[in-house]
Computed example of a mutant assay.
Amino acid sequence: MHEALTHASDRLGIELPALSQASDFSTTEIQEARQFFMSRLGENHGLDIVVCGSMARREMSTASDFDFLVVGHSLVEDATRFRSFRAACEDWCDERALKPPGSTGIFGRVVAATELVDQIGLDSDTNASLTRRILMLEEGVSVLEPHLHRKFAKVAIGRYLHGGQSEPGGTPRFLLNDVVRYWRTIAVDYQAKVWQSLTPNDWGLRYLKLRISRKLTFVATLASLFLVELRRPEDSRTFLVDQFVEVPALARLAQLSDDLADEDQSLAYLREVLVVAEEFSEFLADDDRRTAAKEVLPPAREATDEVFSAMRERSIQLQQALEGLFFESPTLGPLSRKYLSF
């Protein structure tokens, strides 16, 4: 488990065994994936394989998907390499009994890093490109050539910072706005998918993931952006690159335990947030509870399944704790009101 999470759990007096186990499992899978792809594909092809999702967030379970993108960083002379990279990813899924990317078309594709960085906003920035760019920043992990992924993060963050900050050393508003845009987009798209589907498969589990896992990733990113203003690093760009490349999402949120050290109520809210994250990690690792949640149909308020209802109640309590943490804290409250309201 990342040292920031370990440090926070010690400071807050909580144990996180499920998150620790998921982190160890994820780290092992990432290391073995790197060995597999390096042996299978070699390096210096101008292509990288970036994984998102629970594996990248170090929250993986045996039921997790392998959500990958083949990312082009330069023009590849042999176009058949695109197919060989995708085939290697499919073989990895078969070998490890991992679920391949879902049917949405976001993952399992070849994408150009330059387009993701250059086309921010306006009509050319589709839902797909927005999703890929933000997820690659928020939780992406390279399983082939990590230096290329770090280069992507450096260039992407530089592009956002070029748009300006509110003030020297302030929170990067351009990047923050795009992160908020992505969060609002997936929330709206989720409702659209429920509306369009006459038989919403796995609805209950997707509902809980949106309200817990995805929400935690969003607020973890807000924490990193606010830390630019709170800690005033000498080099904001390098600080953010390190945050996104080196620190998993939940660990970025856990870092706040140091910045809120004198705020007992804020630390209590942070403690509750991490406890819910721990409980949901344990929930996701339990096949019976996952299956029960998948079988629940909308709307949530009419669900009768006790397993689903209990976790939904915890998601409500998570929301309340996050509201307290970000809006009642003397440290975070002014930033939240300034950057998240108007």
Rank of each mutant, 00 (worst) to 15 (best):
D189W: 07
D286Q: 14
T126C: 03
H147D: 12
G140E: 10
A293H: 14
L210P: 10
E15L: 09
V276C: 10
E43W: 10
L318M: 07
A261I: 00
E302N: 12
G204E: 11
A153R: 11
E323H: 11
Q196Y: 07
V70C: 08
N127P: 09
V307M: 04
M136I: 01
K215T: 07
F218D: 00
T291H: 13
F226H: 02
A293D: 13
C93T: 07
V141G: 12
K154Y: 13
S142T: 01
E15M: 01
W92H: 06
L130E: 01
R159P: 00
C93G: 01
R34S: 15
L340E: 00
R86E: 15
D178P: 00
G324R: 05
L148D: 01
G158Y: 15
A113N: 07
M1E: 10
T238E: 15
V51Y: 14
S124C: 00
T304M: 14
C89P: 08
E328H: 12
Q265W: 06
S64F: 11
A187S: 14
C52D: 10
F68E: 06
L135W: 05
V155H: 12
F244S: 01
Y207F: 08
L5G: 11
L225M: 09
A261L: 01
A56R: 05
V188C: 00
P100D: 13
M136K: 04
A268N: 07
Q21R: 15
E43N: 02
L260N: 03
L75S: 07
V110G: 10
A63G: 13
